[in-house]
Computed example of a mutant assay.
Amino acid sequence: MIDTLGATLRHNLEARNGMLVPGAANALAARVIEDLGFDAVYISGAGVANTYLGVPDIGLVGLAEMVQHTQVIRDACDLPLIVDADTGYGNALNVRHAVRSLERAGANAIQLEDQVMPKKCGHFAGKAVVETAEMLGKIKAAVDARHSRDFLIIARTDARAIHGLDAALERAAAFAAAGADLTFVEAPESPDELARIARELQCPQVANMVIGGRTPALPAKELGELGFGMVLYANAALQAALQGMIQALSVLRNEGILSESSHLIASFQERQRIVRKDEFDAMEDRYATGSPPA
Rank of each mutant, 00 (worst) to 15 (best):
R10I: 09
G122K: 09
V99I: 15
A105M: 09
I82P: 01
A64K: 11
T51P: 01
R16Y: 06
D84I: 09
A76K: 07
H97D: 00
V48E: 03
L60Y: 15
A64W: 11
L36Q: 08
L28P: 01
A46E: 04
G54M: 07
Q68Y: 06
K120H: 10
H97Y: 15
R100M: 14
D75M: 09
G106W: 09
V67I: 14
L53Y: 12
D35S: 10
R10D: 04
M117R: 10
A142G: 12
G122H: 10
E14M: 11
T132F: 12
A30M: 07
F38N: 00
N12D: 08
E34M: 07
E113K: 07
A125S: 08
A125V: 14
E14Y: 14
D35F: 15
K127L: 06
F124T: 00
I2A: 02
V48G: 04
I139M: 05
G37I: 15
I73D: 00
D39W: 13
D57G: 09
C121P: 01
N17K: 14
I110Q: 02
M19Y: 11
V72R: 05
I33N: 00
N50A: 15
G90R: 13
A40M: 07
E103A: 04
Q71C: 05
A98T: 13
N91W: 15
D75C: 09
Q68K: 05
L28F: 15
F38G: 00
A92L: 11
A25C: 10
Y52Q: 03
P118S: 03
I2C: 00
R16E: 04
L28S: 01
T132M: 12
K140T: 13
E65Q: 12
R74F: 05
F38Q: 00
A40N: 03
V41L: 05
L93M: 11
K119P: 01
A92T: 07
L13A: 03
I73C: 05
I139P: 01
G37C: 10
D114S: 05
D78W: 06
D35I: 12
A7W: 14
I110D: 01
M135T: 07
N12L: 13
C121K: 02
V41M: 06
I110F: 10
K119Q: 02
A24T: 04
G137V: 12
T8I: 12
L36V: 14
F38C: 00
P56E: 03
N108F: 11
F124Q: 05
L112M: 08
L60T: 12
A85S: 07
Q71R: 14
E113N: 03
P80M: 10
G137A: 07
F38S: 00
R104P: 00
R10W: 12
L20I: 15
P118V: 13
L9V: 11
K120W: 12
N94T: 10
A133K: 15
T132G: 01
L13F: 15
G106T: 02
L81I: 08
L79G: 02
K119Y: 13
R10V: 06
V61N: 04
